[in-house]
Amino acid sequence: MSASQAFAPTGGASTARSAQASAAQGFVEFADVEKSYDGRSFAVTRMNLTVARGEFLTLLGPSGSGKTTTLNMLAGFERPTHGTITLEGQPVDRLPPYQRNIGMVFQNYALFPHMTVEENVAFPLSVRQVSKADIAARVARALDMVRLRQFGDRRPTQLSGGQQQRVALARALVFQPSLVLMDEPLGALDKKLREHMQLEIKQIHTMLGVTIVYVTHDQSEALTMSDRVAVFNQGGIAQLGSPDDLYNTPQSSFVASFIGENNTLEGVVDRVSGEQCHVRLNGGGEITALAVGVSEGSTCHVAVRPERLSLSAAASGGNALPATVDGRIYLGDHLRLLARLANDQLLTVKVGPEATMANGETVTVSCAPNDCRAFPADAGTSGAIPKQGKTK
């Protein structure tokens, strides 16, 4: 039996009918969900979110944006103040956590230090009164899946951080949950190990096809692992889409600044022509950009990625701004050059390591209009969240 077969949900025809029903309405659904802890301010406001069966969805956002509160409501650790949460078409917002058939992986692993690795993984099966023979077989398969079978008799304190996190993952999957929730599970690991575990978790997700809802504040982690990402801000979803959508077509200044690295130029929209607008920059200079919700005469922020900018000795068409090289940062496979514009603003430009521009050299910074996006400035970098219902 393969690992995917060993951990696949069972149930025959009834499960197939359930799968068809949940596919039609969403495997997980938040409908007008709100959460307030004091009755006045809201940690989550009018949350409407659908998660497909088998999807890897990441909730991404800064501290206090509502992502962890959303996960806790789905897990059953918090109850929504308003609205309904359904799992496979059934309301779960009033069910205790142990009745939801959800696996959970935490940042601090939450392993029992007095138990062996095998006993930790077996624990969810024991409390569900699975037979001892079945427990042994399923624990062995789970440890094989995370490549820790040989460490079954060790205590968690005898393992590295990455090994402990893999034990936590095996424990979350061993009882064949319908949904796995992960709350910043890699936050305690160093960079190299974190990147390795990102790939391991994604491989397991692909192999098993289990539905995963993952919380992180790490943008690169979200872009690497997810089918879709929900970017949270101020208690709501600022944008929901694929990693490619969020990186290349952000819909607000907040998303543009939070996902990846961006340069931001401030100015006033001189005119709008079709999908593009012409912007007079503060302190001098002009630029043409894609218009995203801006109008003539309004102040705006123009966002452009460092890798979309180029440097040359002279203007070469498109958007061209005179600048002076103000710094060089060597990063192995590329250079980050700091270019100071006439208005004293610094832009970061990503170029190849062979670039020869020296500090103090006069250059032209240029970019294509379609690589620039102009957003309303009234939203600021905090971002305007699309209205999700009544405001509080």
Rank of each mutant, 00 (worst) to 15 (best):
P96N: 11
P97V: 07
P97W: 11
P97A: 13
Y98F: 15
Q99K: 15
Q99F: 11
N101F: 02
N101E: 11
N101S: 03
G103M: 00
F106D: 03
Q107R: 02
Q107H: 05
Q107E: 13
N108M: 02
N108W: 05
Y109D: 05
A110C: 07
L111H: 05
L111N: 03
L111M: 02
L111V: 01
F112D: 00
F112Y: 15
F112S: 00
P113F: 08
P113N: 09
P113S: 05
H114L: 02
M115H: 11
V117R: 10
V117D: 03
E118Q: 14
E119H: 07
E119A: 15
E119F: 05
V121N: 06
V121Y: 12
V121L: 07
V121H: 11
V121E: 09
A122M: 06
A122L: 04
F123N: 00
F123Q: 00
P124C: 04
P124S: 04
L125H: 07
L125P: 08
S126G: 03
S126H: 08
S126M: 13
V127R: 09
R128H: 00
S131V: 05
K132A: 15
K132R: 15
A133P: 03
D134M: 04
D134C: 00
D134L: 08
D134S: 10
I135G: 00
I135V: 14
A136R: 15
A137F: 01
R138C: 00
R138L: 05
R138E: 10
A140I: 05
R141D: 12
R141A: 15
A142K: 11
A142Q: 09
D144S: 14
M145L: 15
M145N: 03
R147Y: 04
R147H: 14
R147Q: 15
L148A: 09
F151H: 15
G152W: 11
G152T: 08
G152F: 06
D153E: 12
R154H: 09
R154G: 00
R155C: 00
P156C: 06
T157R: 14
T157E: 14
L159C: 12
S160V: 10
G161R: 12
G161V: 13
G162V: 10
G162D: 08
G162Q: 06
G162N: 07
Q163Y: 12
Q165G: 11
Q165D: 13
Q165R: 02
R166M: 10
R166V: 11
R166F: 13
V167D: 07
V167Q: 09
V167K: 11
A168W: 09
L169E: 09
A170F: 12
R171A: 01
R171C: 04
R171G: 03
A172V: 01
A172L: 01
L173T: 01
L173P: 10
V174T: 06
V174G: 03
Q176V: 12
Q176Y: 02
P177K: 01
S178A: 14
S178D: 14
S178N: 13
L179C: 05
L179G: 05
L179M: 08
V180F: 03
V180T: 08
V180L: 08
L181M: 08
L181G: 05
M182K: 01
D183F: 03
E184A: 07
E184T: 09
P185A: 07
P185M: 06
L186S: 10
L186D: 09
G187S: 15
A188I: 09
A188H: 14
D190A: 02
K191Q: 14
L193F: 06
L193D: 03
R194C: 11
R194I: 11
H196D: 15
M197V: 09
M197D: 11
